[in-house]
Design a protein around this nucleic acid. Structure first.
Length: 427
RNA sequence: GGCGGGUUGCCCGAGCGGUCAAAGGGAGCAGACUGUAAAUCUGUCGCGAAAGCUACGAAGGUUCGAACCCUUCACCCGCCA
């Protein structure tokens, strides 16, 4: 729906989504000439996409809404090789694992674009389809011949790796595979634009040059900035250190929502521009609210809501908002009616214990998953960071009584200020 | 194929026969202050109530005692062929 008459490139610009590009004026002309086909690739380096992957993925969505045709590419082939990164050589995953991850990721990718069979209907591909059958000689003669080692050695990542622990020929070749993808998509689908994160710039322009050298066509490249927080840390790492994943089995919708509610003031407006489709006026209004009444966290709530809806859907979003309000609300937990509390418990992490076992606060914390070990649980209690039903518990030997149970079966645990969980208590 | 260097906790990194569950830094967690923010300060940071157990690439060995010494294996890096 191109309800906004603003040009897609102008929109991407004010959202802060353009880091590097080939000739923008030429791209604009091609975009204006009619539906343009573009692609972004995602390698299966994990069983799920994570929050950071959404910047280029949503870029495809934005282009589709502006009347262009997106191709989402699952890197079944490139995922078997591994893109060189600064941290050193990757460990190869088995073919089975890569194939399974590629299938999962493909399923996630499909949710962000529309497949309607129209000229702007999305296409999903897997680069294994054309790379898997390529012979070594084809690779060396038809692809490799067009690449200069001198240029490849000059790439930042390669330079850093050569100064460090070195790099395998396999990873060094990654550029050729991704470049070849662009060529294939250009031929099959007339694809003329590749988008990705700015770390992909070298790989993308590699494809642009390959297409120019072999087919003589000028195609485009556009990258989005790598998203970092105000501290410069890579975006999408949960407070626990790991990635936040799209797969609800890996990161629950509740945890997803909570992560974005907790985004800092310095980042929230930028994230609204990058990760939502909210119009400029609305984002500006939220920015103003953050500046004037930061404690309301209006922008954070809106970001979390929009982003959860985008990834997990309307129904889940309503559930997790209700759960968050119940658990973080000012109100007395005892005043919550049973359906509300039960629904909230269904969203938050929960554990279960039996009253007959006479569990202590330490047992409860471990059971709920709020602490990883009993030692950590005891520490939390001694630090004054353990709560049951919003009442601080300072004694490691504290045990719940029947009267503590909410609606006869729930205890709401909290560790610190932000982590809550439920425990279902059986007689 | 030869020679040399390396593999330490979530990450980086010190340790080089007992006093090492292992310095230091980062990350994480908690407390204070706040707004489910940031910054700052403080505490904490393998498992266990404890005894103790498990850990310093893997497996053996020497020793009263090993992350530290020896042997073999695996992997990584560099130089030479």
């Amino acid at each position: 729906m191109a309800s906004v008459s603003e040009h897609i490139l102008d929109e991407l610009t004010w959202r802060g989504l353009i880091a590097q590009s080939t000739d923008l004026d030429a791209l604009r002309r091609d975009l204006d000439a009619g539906p343009l086909t573009l692609y972004a690739g995602f390698d299966p380096t994990a069983p799920s996409l994570h929050a950071g992957n959404l910047v280029p993925l949503l870029m495809l969505t934005r282009f589709q809404r502006a009347g262009h045709r997106p191709i989402v590419l699952a890197g079944g082939a490139t995922g078997m090789v591994g893109d060189p990164r600064d941290q050193g050589e990757r460990t190869l995953n088995s073919l089975d694992v890569v194939a399974e991850w590629a299938a999962r990721i493909r399923g996630q990718l499909e949710r962000f674009v529309e497949f309607d069979g129209s000229p702007t209907g999305a296409v999903v591909v897997n680069n294994l389809d054309w790379t898997g059958g390529m012979s070594v000689l084809e690779y060396l003669r038809d692809v490799g011949k067009h690449f200069s080692i001198n240029v490849m050695l000059a790439r930042e990542t390669v330079k850093r790796r050569l100064e460090g622990d070195g790099m395998s020929y396999t990873e060094f070749s990654y550029l050729l595979l991704q470049s070849h993808d662009y060529l294939q998509l250009h031929r099959k689908y007339d694809c003329a634009l590749q988008v990705g994160g700015s770390d992909q710039w070298g790989n993308i322009v590699g494809g642009v040059e390959l297409v120019r050298r072999i087919d003589g066509d000028a195609v485009h490249a556009l990258t989005a900035p790598l998203v970092t927080d105000a501290e410069g840390r890579k975006f999408g790492k949960s407070t626990g250190g790991g990635n936040i994943w799209l797969d609800p089995a890996l990161t629950s919708p509740y945890a997803w929502y909570q992560y974005f509610v907790n985004v800092g003031d310095a980042d929230v407006v930028r994230y609204l521009r990058l990760f939502t489709f909210l119009p400029r006026e609305e984002i500006d209004a939220l920015a103003e609210q953050t500046a004037e009444r930061p404690h309301l966290r209006a922008a954070q709530r809106r970001l979390a809501e929009e982003f959860t809806r985008l990834v997990h859907g309307e129904h889940e979003t309503r559930q997790v908002i209700a759960a968050s309000q119940a658990l973080f609300g000012r109100g007395e937990l005892r005043d919550l009616d049973e359906p509300t509390l039960t629904a909230a418990m269904a969203e938050a992490p929960t554990g279960s214990v039996r009253l007959a076992d006479a569990p202590t606060i330490v047992d409860l914390l471990v059971s709920s998953g709020l602490t990883p070990s009993r030692g950590a649980a005891r520490r939390a209690v001694n630090e004054g960071g353990a709560y049951v039903n919003n009442v601080k518990i300072g004694d490691e030997d504290w045990r719940p009584a029947t009267g503590d149970l909410l609606h006869g079966r729930w205890l709401v645990l909290r560790r610190g200020k932000r982590s809550t969980a439920g425990v279902e208590v059986a007689p």
